[in-house]
Design a protein around this nucleic acid. Structure first.
Lengths: 350, 350
DNA sequence: GTGAAAGCGCTAACAC
DNA sequence: GTGTTAGCGCTTTCAC
């Protein structure tokens, strides 16, 4: 292991460059940041020294002074979800474009982790935060907001017009799904969802289911709601298991509407194993339109969320806030649409 | 917006606590870090002040002194991939356990991004790095390693026994797959892969295909290799398109072996649309065993990588290195196995 | 048991 | 056009 002559902290600092180049430390800083004019000859000496000593400025030390690191944090419950990762992709695009670094903090749907990670990021080096929360934690978010930390909340209506938010209209979206199904004559629509005690988004979707039924003159049947917390962790596997059991009870719906595509996959599998043909016997409709829904058998009809666009918007909003630009609209509602593929058709006659 | 009396940098610092509690800065530091004994009465005053001013120590400033932030960086090509996200999960488990924060940097398979993000993390606040590379960039990794930055490389054999690495034996694994297929009498095995010009892992798997054929006395037929760079970005969609075209040419294999499960999904779909039954007419075998392979039709027979375990091992290794523990084995090979499901059966008679 | 002060690597105001 | 120096928020010697 070869050691340099000087080894204060193991890493070359601006000071080393200054002495190597025989100039003042501020001069080095100035050539690095192009923050004031430096004579070409001096500049060259500095650049040479940097090259020679393989120097890289310490962003953190800079951040300590400058109070900005051009890094933003994204808190989310679960990276393995295709929905999240698509949104992330949208965030990243803008990060790159506007020269920020994106830091991901993943909470695995654990509320304490959420608080812990958010705090850790805030305490450290982050200029702002994008918050996908798994929970109803308005208080916590509000507290961050009140500390004047730039934040935008995504995929979760907060009911606070002050806090910047990017969402879809969940209730209307599910209502549209119900309308769509009804236009194919479905009257027995089984709704598959996780429990929403703790999650606005899930609750709003459920309301959409309810109001959709009402609007279409269908009586609500509690037996046709498959709601379980278990589905949170093992999404597809649980919906598969639950639907399979449900089918054995013999009370058949004409269609399944699921709160997410991943559940629809489980439904599809259960239906197949129990000998039902989709959509001839029973229709299935998803929600999200994640990538894989283009490869199921049959191809999945679903509600499309513009995930990448949501990420773009959220990140642009956040950076605007960080950089002090005027933000007119703080709550942004991204439109959704239905993608018609193969898994929904007319309800079988009784 | 309510302002505090003092608003130097907008955030309360250790100094504020010291003056609020009427003690020295160092005392505050000492109670926070429990780094030397402080009288109970003093301690209480400090704690009260912290509570009252809602103070949180600035990890970065600490890091600047201490040269450690207990954060590690993970560089990876693509978060949306199920394979990566499972490994990440394994990394995270250990991070939590050993009290580190995991920072994710995503490169979208862009080499310059890879360099840029890695450097940015290193220059900043990271204690170590886990590197999933999309590329053959031994030089770059070596340079990081030589800078004495704790690093472990995952999913990529480097051929340098010095640099800590967690991998599977790709060649042997694919060879096993070929053996397995041969045990079902397959002699025309079509191999679906992206190009490996730039990626050791992909190349090694291809070698496994070749050596597997040889070992089983099968002549190599170049027409049976579907190799394309296009599949990198649109994995499933591309494999679907390519296989569909291939099938129309009429030269039929008895089995498809794909370099990743995501490709197998495309193959499955193409086969279905072209009227082939799997596995009766043609068998399909994947590689990775990602979650979704339990829900395809038919269920996918595939080679299982222990993704979470790989993450666990890599992170433990990294933390051991960071904390200066002695590491005996620097190259760790994680075993693989074949998961038999429904998509492979005996080759049809010619 | 506690305080004063130096210093981590950097920027920016102020000098000249 | 360049140098000196204070200070960002923190830890850690060294005093007392």
């Amino acid at each position: 292991m070869k050691d340099s002559k000087k080894r204060k902290s193991g890493v070359t600092s601006i000071k080393d460059i200054a002495s190597e180049a025989g100039v003042a430390i501020s001069t080095v800083s100035n050539v690095i940041n192009e923050t004031r004019f430096v004579a070409d000859s001096t500049k060259e000496k500095v650049l040479d020294a940097i090259e020679k000593l393989n120097y890289r400025p310490n962003i953190i030390a800079r951040g300590l002074r400058i109070k900005s690191t051009r890094a933003i944090g994204v808190i989310l419950p679960d990276i393995s979800s295709s929905f999240f990762s698509q949104v992330i992709y949208g965030i990243e695009e803008i990060a790159r474009q506007r020269d920020y670094t994106m830091i991901l903090g993943c909470t695995n749907f654990d509320y304490r982790e959420e608080v812990k990670i958010a705090n850790k990021l805030i305490d450290s080096f982050i200029d702002g935060l994008i918050f996908f929360s798994g929970f109803d934690n308005y208080e916590f978010i509000k507290k961050i907001y009140d500390r004047n930390i730039p934040i935008v909340v995504i995929d979760k209506a907060l009911g606070d017009s002050e806090i910047p938010t990017v969402v879809i209209d969940n209730t209307a979206a599910v209502e549209n799904c119900v309308d769509y199904l009804c236009s194919y004559n479905h009257k027995k629509i089984c709704y598959v969802t996780f429990t929403g005690d703790n999650q606005t988004t899930v609750r709003q979707r459920y309301e959409g289911y309810l109001s959709g039924l009402k609007k279409n003159g269908i009586d609500f049947d509690p037996d046709l709601v498959l709601m379980s917390e278990e589905m949170r962790l093992n999404e597809t596997a649980s919906s598969y298991r639950i639907v399979k059991e449900f089918l054995k009870k013999g009370k058949l719906p004409t269609a399944f509407l699921t709160v997410a595509d991943v559940f629809a996959y489980g439904v599809l599998r259960a239906l197949f194993e129990e000998g039902f043909k989709v959509p001839e016997d029973i229709s299935v409709m998803g929600f999200d339109n994640i990538l894989f829904s283009q490869f199921t058998r049959p191809l999945l009809t679903t509600l499309k969320q513009q995930k990448r666009v949501m990420g773009n918007i959220a990140m642009n909003l956040l950076v605007d806030i960080i950089e002090g630009r005027e933000v007119e609209d703080k709550t942004i509602i991204v439109p959704t649409s239905i993608v018609e593929r193969e898994s929904v058709s007319f309800a079988r006659k009784k």
